[in-house]
Amino acid sequence: MITEPISLAELERDALTEIVNIGVSRAASNLRKMIGGEVLLSVPSIDVVSQRRAARLISEREVSDLIAVRQNFQGPFSGCALLIFPETNSLELVRAVTGGELSTAELVEMEHEALAETGNVILNSCLATMANMLKRSLQMTIPEVIRGSGATLFEVDETNASEGLVLFLYINFSVRKHDIRGYIAMIMDLPSLATLKELLDEFIQRVMSDDA
């Protein structure tokens, strides 16, 4: 059971937001090279919430089923990274990534592969940037595409009182002038989040020393 919720102090949140923004910028740059067109991604805010709360937040915003690219990561902090879209948006993303020249049947056929590749680019860019700026390294599994409700994606188990926490990011995409919304989420247990807080504090100290 979570007896002492871990929250980020304002400086830690600002540092993490800066790091993730750099990761998202790199993801946009990598996607741009991949598809040969304009890509804009924004990360307006970061929340640290329970898995149940994350599932509830996304269910309140999205009425349709969800589709996600999931990659596990291991290192000084470990967990599961998700790039999540409303299912109604997933074909729109595939259409944008593939240049908009495929029929609906062809899009459906390519959906899994295109989503996995897009998720791989975005999640790898974000996590590799986080690890690099925190002077650590992470290993990531190959991406898998999953579908379901918020509770399914965030692995909410009503019979289990113990649960991890989620770093929850809401992002807006613009790919080839298609507006697509999505979410990046990282599920971590309490020890991993505690380690991340320590690494953020080290990062803040380094930045302050450099500025001094």
Rank of each mutant, 00 (worst) to 15 (best):
L83M: 10
K33E: 15
P191F: 00
E117R: 02
V175S: 09
D201A: 14
M208T: 10
G37E: 10
R26C: 09
A27H: 03
V49E: 06
M140S: 08
L83S: 02
L83N: 01
R136D: 15
T159E: 10
V69H: 01
I2M: 11
A185W: 03
R95T: 10
L66T: 02
E101I: 14
P5T: 11
L40C: 10
S209N: 12
G75F: 04
L41V: 14
Y170E: 15
I22A: 02
F73N: 04
I142S: 04
I187A: 06
A96L: 05
T159D: 10
T141A: 15
S137G: 12
N172L: 05
I19E: 00
L115K: 03
D14I: 12
E10A: 15
T195Q: 08
T98F: 06
T3M: 09
R56H: 11
M208V: 09
E10F: 13
F154R: 02
V20D: 00
A131E: 07
R13V: 08
I122W: 02
E60N: 06
F154L: 12
K177Y: 13
S59T: 11
N21P: 09
V108N: 11
K197A: 07
L41Y: 05
I171Q: 04
L167Q: 01
I58D: 04
E106C: 05
L165C: 06
N72A: 15
L200W: 01
L16Y: 00
N120D: 11
I46A: 00
N89M: 14
L8C: 04
T195W: 01
S137Q: 14
G100M: 05
T88M: 14
D14M: 11
V156G: 00
I46T: 01
H178I: 13
G119R: 00
N124Q: 12
V166K: 01
L31W: 08
S103C: 03
A27Q: 02
G100E: 04
N160K: 08
G119Q: 01
L138E: 12
E10V: 14
I184G: 02
E198C: 04
L83W: 02
I2C: 08
E144M: 08
T141W: 11
F73T: 08
S125Q: 04
I84E: 01
L11W: 07
R61G: 15
T17F: 04
V94K: 02
V166M: 05
L190I: 14
N120S: 12
M208S: 07
S103Q: 04
G36H: 11
L200M: 02
G148C: 07
C80A: 13
E117S: 07
R136H: 13
F168T: 05
L11H: 14
S78G: 09
I84T: 06
S50I: 03
I58P: 07
L82Y: 01
T88F: 14
S25A: 15
E111N: 09
E92H: 13
L138S: 12
Q71D: 05
R26E: 13
E144N: 12
